[in-house]
Write a protein that binds this DNA or RNA. Structure first.
Lengths: 118, 118
DNA sequence: GCAATCGTCAACCGGATGGTTGAATATCGT
DNA sequence: ACGATATTCAACCATCCGGTTGACGATTGC
């Protein structure tokens, strides 16, 4: 299909998928458990997981009835490295980091929160 | 529209736009000059530049007749920082970096090369 | 074997995306 | 003022994307 870098970035360009990655950061999870906090259907989450797996960001392994999803940081690292190539000429600004984290916590948790807004 | 992080990743998820960023890494450029190496229409490039500007990855400044495009690494750094949050638990492997650069040079230049394949 | 559970597949829908072309706008040079 | 240059706008088109629902396949447990 598309080049790997495009696939990874496209996979990251969705708050639901980034939230899933965040969840998988804590632990491997079954598809149903991944889907549980979200409002959308299981099929939708299944598609998101397929997208993440296509990008190499996660792997899925069937064990009995349940399919376990596991973070695969390698693809992410490639993209990160690509970015660092750009950022290279200017070192990471830790102040900007903190400022970013604040705004990101605000927006991301508003947009991505798996908790139903009800 | 969407949250900033999604916008940045979506902007990066296109080889043409990444190639443009690569070009702007060298120097600021006029829109026409950005478009010159590509096969697509000027309008298409103009849209790509708008996408990049929306994501905050570039800025455009009109000086006379010509609009100069300039890389704005801040948005990229935010995304990079987000990624590093994921990669944190495992440090960047410089060997992997080099290996990646090779394959990326191969694929990126096959897919993204501004030079007409003719 | 049968019912329940886990997950995907297929078809569909509306809206975004990436491209085109042609007209419109803005600026420059004469 | 006019023509040329630089860039965008608008309309259009095909395709992709994120979601839905309903049927299907696989596995478990009774």
């Amino acid at each position: 299909m598309a080049d790997p870098l495009s696939t990874v970035f496209a996979a990251l360009a969705d708050p639901t998928r980034r939230a899933i990655l965040n969840m998988l950061l804590e632990d491997d999870m079954a598809v149903t458990d991944v889907a549980e906090p979200f409002q959308m259907s299981l099929a939708a989450i299944s598609k998101h997981l397929a997208t993440l797996a296509d990008a190499g960001l996660i792997s899925r392994e069937r064990r009995g009835r349940v399919i376990w999803c596991k973070l695969e940081p390698d693809a992410l690292r490639n993209a990160s490295v690509w970015m660092q190539g750009f950022g290279q000429f200017e070192p990471v600004d830790l102040d900007a980091f903190e400022r970013f984290l604040e705004t990101e916590l605000a927006t991301e948790f508003a947009d991505d929160s798996p908790a139903a807004p009800d």
